[in-house]
Computed example of a mutant assay.
Amino acid sequence: MTTPLAGIRVVEFGHYIAAPAATQMLADLGAEVVKIEPPSGDQARGIGAYGEGIVLAYNRGKRSVVLDLKRPGDRGIAADLIARADVVVQNLRTGALARLGLGPDEMRAANPRLVYVSISGFGAKGPSAGRAGLDIAAQAESGMMSINGEQGGDPLRVGFPIADVAASYAAVQAVLAALLRRERTGEGGVAEVSLLNAAIHLQSAMWGEWHVSRQEPRRKGNGQATVAPAADLVRTSDGTIVLSAYTPDRFARLCRVIGREWMIDDPRFADNPARVANREALLAEISQALGGLRTEECLKLLGEQGIVAAAVRTYREVAGAADVRAGGVLTTGIGPDGDRYPIPSLPFALDGVEPPADRAVPRPGADSDGPHWA
């Protein structure tokens, strides 16, 4: 079966995560991607292990062309590539490509079928359009950090660049929607994605809860603020699990399976408001019941009763997990030096589509001297 984006040509002007991650997904769906890098390379290429990890994660199977866009000749090459492309994805500073004559208005005038997607920190229309906008800024200003952390503690960022990744997913959705519209109308389009917008959108349920409760969401640690037990940690004899059993039927099942049926009628635990108010006592009982069991024993015991429970796993444990292996969640990448490494593949399975494996990350400018399109 033909890959969904076979024959689609993508030009990327990307640094770090948001744009490169978006075009990586497009490449995994069969698109040809030419990554335009400045003479110094993608900014992620020179910042140590974190940056090299970004490069390995989001640049497999692309072609790298080094262009100095300050030079008219190189701008002409970029314009020619865009004129023959279906999609542009870029996350340079707002307006940078437009000032060079490579913005969406100029490029779509030359190529009306072009889909042009720009990713910024705060959007292109507000007072922060010109601000530098890395992931941490979006986490902070989206409200995300205000609800993440221990009760009474400092705000915490999510432990990975979640706003960048969310923006990359939004960009891919925009590309696919625009390509579908183009099939119907023949016209491309322009899409704007911001890290701030994506980070706020991730919290839609919290916005709904804010409206219903009329209370500002606050940091509560691992437990969910209005239900219990929900997303609560329980120590086992060899690790940690999280569990949720806050509906009446599941809470009753939990009480029975851990041998504490009396908790069902205890006024401290009779409903969610009571359990939230007495969460410490609730977790003490659950922990005492499960603490002597191994993690896998807990998962089996609770899972057989339809209770949501999961082990807290390290990356090494995740890589070896049976569900991860069975689902083909990880693929094999090849670094610029030929080293092989496990890396997440597409976040979904589509019948007849196998994302290409064993695709190499190019060195900066590896394809500058060759034909840019096959």
Rank of each mutant, 00 (worst) to 15 (best):
Tyr116His: 11
Arg84Ala: 12
Asp367His: 10
Leu5Pro: 06
Gly259Thr: 07
Asn222Asp: 12
Gly76Gln: 13
Gln224Gly: 05
Arg359Ser: 06
Leu195Gly: 05
Val172Lys: 10
Gly14Glu: 00
Ser146Trp: 07
Val88Glu: 03
Glu296Trp: 00
Pro104Lys: 08
Leu102Val: 06
Ser120Cys: 05
Asn59Val: 03
Leu196Thr: 06
Gly370Ser: 07
Ala44Arg: 00
Val276Glu: 00
Tyr246Ser: 11
Gly208Val: 06
Gly333Tyr: 08
Arg99Pro: 05
Val227Tyr: 08
Pro371Val: 04
Asp249Ile: 01
Arg45Thr: 00
Gly328Ser: 13
Arg313Cys: 05
Arg60Asn: 07
Leu156Met: 14
Asp42Thr: 04
Val312Met: 15
Ala137Thr: 09
Lys300Tyr: 11
Ala166Cys: 11
Gly223Arg: 13
Arg313Met: 09
Gly152Asn: 12
His15Met: 10
Ala284Val: 09
Met263Thr: 01
Val55Tyr: 06
Leu180Arg: 14
Arg9Phe: 08
Gln215Asn: 12
Gln24Phe: 01
Leu29Met: 15
Ala270Ser: 14
Ile334Ala: 12
Gly352Pro: 04
Gly189Tyr: 13
Pro273Asn: 00
Asn91Ser: 06
Ser118Thr: 12
Trp262Tyr: 05
Ala170Tyr: 13
Val193Lys: 14
Pro72Asn: 10
Ala284Ile: 06
Arg219Pro: 02
Ala98His: 11
Ala310Ser: 15
Met144Phe: 11
Pro104Asp: 14
Ala349Tyr: 02
Thr236Val: 11
Leu350Cys: 11
Arg181Asp: 15
Arg214Leu: 13
Val212Asp: 14
Ala366Ser: 04
Ala78Glu: 02
Val190Leu: 14
Ala109Asn: 03
Ala166Trp: 07
Asn222Glu: 13
